[in-house]
Design a binder for these strands. Sequence first.
DNA 1: CCCACTTTCGACCAGAGTGGTCAGTTATCA
DNA 2: TGATAACTGACCACTCTGGTCGAAAGTGGG
Lengths: 212, 212
Amino acid sequence: MGVLLRQSFEKLPDSLKHTIRNAAYRVFTDEGFSKASTNHIITIAGISKGGLFYHFQSKEDLYRYLIDYALAFIEKHYIGRLRHLERTDFITRYREVAAIKHEAMQKESHVFTFLATLHLKRPQEIPSEQSARMHSLMQESEDILTKDIDTSMLREDIQPGYLLKYMNYVMDGYKNDLQKHYRSHDFGEEDFQKDFEDYERFLQHMKKLFYK
Amino acid sequence: MGVLLRQSFEKLPDSLKHTIRNAAYRVFTDEGFSKASTNHIITIAGISKGGLFYHFQSKEDLYRYLIDYALAFIEKHYIGRLRHLERTDFITRYREVAAIKHEAMQKESHVFTFLATLHLKRPQEIPSEQSARMHSLMQESEDILTKDIDTSMLREDIQPGYLLKYMNYVMDGYKNDLQKHYRSHDFGEEDFQKDFEDYERFLQHMKKLFYK
DNA sequence: CCCACTTTCGACCAGAGTGGTCAGTTATCA
DNA sequence: TGATAACTGACCACTCTGGTCGAAAGTGGG
């Protein structure tokens, strides 16, 4: 038995697999492993109790599958693509990374939130083999913003290592504010133009602050 | 009845009230209102089931009390003190705010994490009267870093409003990195010297980047 | 059309855990 | 000492849990 069950799951149509995974990701993300309810998952996914346990032998088996899938997905559609980026300046790099992440999140946004909360969990809730793999991927995704960056146009009165850190802080802060804004404010079409202008001005500011 | 019960709670020794509140804060913060277990709370607090319900008429009554207490505490020991700050430059202001927050968190750190998670919750879990009060306090605490700031020494090629935002991003980023560092790394005595030097250098960098 | 096989369903189970009660014990202090 | 306040934990009815299983429905080859 065991893994054999998951083979039946793999045979499902992609859209159904997607639905079930997303339901499970949502519940596990919100409640954590132990408090997450399989009943809750199946109602969100719109399948039956028996259906779920036909494909997965237990709640834990499902959980492990989700971690595996998330890591594989991130590896393939996010981290893997980051490895091929060419040497460039920080702002361009940040923008490229954001674009790749955006693309990946279009496909499976729940994977990212799931891994993000998993990353903060006490280790008890994460099988140890997967934990190591996860942390190394997380590490790699952080390094991408400091490694192989062209620093030749940065101002020279502060060491480039610090400058990159500070730029990263500012861009993250800007990004977070933007997300907060989008979450609260239901945006109309005409806002895009304004947002785009904002962003252009922001990049000009960054150059004034950090470039020669 | 009702509020009368809370009077018996107020008569308890401060240390016991503190213990009970902290236990409850922890559980409600981790699990949210509906999934939080009173059994869990009493085991952490080290009191009996009957004891809890002698002082609070229900789980919801306890929850409302905690929100009230948190808001009153923040009002008195944090926001209230921020109102008396004198006009100064951003870096000094940020440092003053951090110091006041630090003092308040020494007294009741769980209050801050509780309110922070409460702030992100869907409104269903927050009684509406308290919700408004909470959001206005949160707003006020954000405003303190932009209002009545002396901007005369800022560089002049970027409008001060933007500069303040960017400085805020950088300082928050620095603070977060520091917290992450302290959480992972068990620090010895001699690290303090190094950390202090780091911080001084960081402030120099801030002045180079944002001041004239 | 049948048949063998895979997939799906949901009623059902024993057990755990829930918020809350209350008769009884202990602490307090006049 | 006695009256009252403070506290205890066994107990309650109830909900929800992860998981099972016999039956029904789908599927595709012959």
